[in-house]
């Protein structure tokens, strides 16, 4: 059973978002990393790049498939997880921690509220698995 921590918000496209001091950290969920299998390569946006919510901001390649990563909120990328370049397996090992992808300074912090809460996201995953 995949973990879906309560304090996070989720996109239907399986990204998570965590707000810390006005900055939103983004990664992919435990459910997503499990479905992808071993991650071998992550293509991240450039720091300084402006990304729009629900639009492509990167790619995660696993042994199985390539999958787009969508920005959960609109804003400017202020940091990317450079550790993933040499250790993409962090996405599998610690999807909600060291396996984060990038951080966005949101144009509108209220946009986070439009994302799913943990229970709703978990239900979405359960429905997918059926």
């Amino acid at each position: 059973m995949s973990e879906t921590p309560n304090e996070l918000r989720y996109a239907e496209t399986h990204e998570w978002a965590r707000e810390e001091d006005g900055i939103v950290a983004v990664g992919i969920t435990d459910h997503a990393q499990d479905a992808l299998g071993d991650v071998v390569y992550v293509e991240l946006p450039e720091p300084g790049q402006w990304v729009a919510a629900r639009e492509e901001a990167g790619v995660v390649e696993s042994v199985k498939a390539a999958s787009d990563i969508y920005a959960p909120v609109t804003g400017t990328v202020v940091a990317v997880n450079e550790q993933l370049e040499d250790a993409p397996e962090l996405v599998n090992q610690d999807p909600y921690g060291d396996g984060w992808f990038f951080r966005i300074e949101p144009d509108d912090a209220a946009e986070l509220g439009e994302l799913l809460d943990a229970d709703t996201y978990a239900e979405t995953c359960a429905a997918e698995d059926e």
Binding site: Y41, E43, E61
Partner: peptide
């Protein structure tokens, strides 16, 4: 083929 940069051929 051997890819010489990061990425995955499919």
């Amino acid at each position: 083929l051997a890819l010489t940069v990061r990425g995955v051929m499919r």
